[in-house]
Design a protein around this nucleic acid. Structure first.
Lengths: 138, 138
DNA sequence: TTGCCTGCAAATAATTTGCAGGTGA
DNA sequence: TCACCTGCAAATTATTTGCAGGCAA
């Protein structure tokens, strides 16, 4: 199995909990908070989720991000692909954007190694509701 | 004074504390955490700093962000200008980037209203230290 | 076997909130 | 005057950590 390989390559033991966390993140395919992950386990300790996520970040298997004004961290697999997300300001839904609209920035006296882009706006659903709300007011 | 005007235009009372917070943010010209702001006041209550920052965000005078893996919020004046920051992965220093290397993204079924870009890398100082460290190893 | 893992509960740290008194318009 | 502000302390919430037992290699 692929997951076992990733773990052992990183020098980590293949425990049931770690495999479970990896499976959840693989299936989710979107950034997940520790709480999100925990909710999909069958009673795994929340601190174990945090510890596993932390360890996987340390090994470069996961990335840890904060999103918008959220007061928590979100973890996601670093699949190799460079990804960005479009975040709906109304419902908070996140959607993956496959293209990267960022031109390689060239900054004087600074060695650029990467970047993170968050795109804000409204998803089709919320946009429609906004329009409806507007009409109602008129 | 300009600050008083901003506050009263927003329908807020011009209290000494609010003016102080605005002055600090104007002078800092970089995102500041509540703690950062608090450290520059003369004993203002930390919860007051939080309450003022929250109110100013609500009025669209400040923006509230999280940076990298930091576990706190940073506030900055929305001066009208569109800004991004280059963040040093080694020392955490933030530096303003005046240009915006993001091409207006066009996403199917999503109404884009804005974006946030963080650029990661190493400042000249830290880059130099990395080079030195490398040489030492050789 | 043995050191790395995990669960549980307690500890941190950032942020929020209730309440009583203070202050700007 | 009076509604809005502020300080203080206690409450919340996300995350971390100590410790004792458990499991992978």
């Amino acid at each position: 199995m692929e997951i076992n390989k990733i773990l052992s390559n990183a020098g980590l033991k293949c425990t049931g909990q770690r495999i479970k966390v990896m499976e959840i993140l693989t299936a989710a395919d979107l950034p997940m908070s520790a709480e999100n992950i925990h909710a999909l386990t069958d009673g795994m300790s929340l601190s174990t989720v945090y510890r596993i996520a932390e360890k996987l970040c340390e090994k470069g298997i996961l990335s840890k991000n904060t999103i918008r004004d959220s007061d928590k961290f979100y973890y996601e697999l670093i699949g190799g692909a460079h990804r960005h997300y479009a975040i709906c300001l109304s419902c908070g839904q996140m959607r993956r954007v496959n293209v990267c609209p960022v031109a390689a920035p060239d900054i004087d006296g600074f060695t650029v190694t990467g970047h993170k882009l968050e795109i804000y706006g409204y998803c089709a659903e919320c946009e429609r509701q906004k329009q409806t709300a507007k009409k109602r007011v008129l």
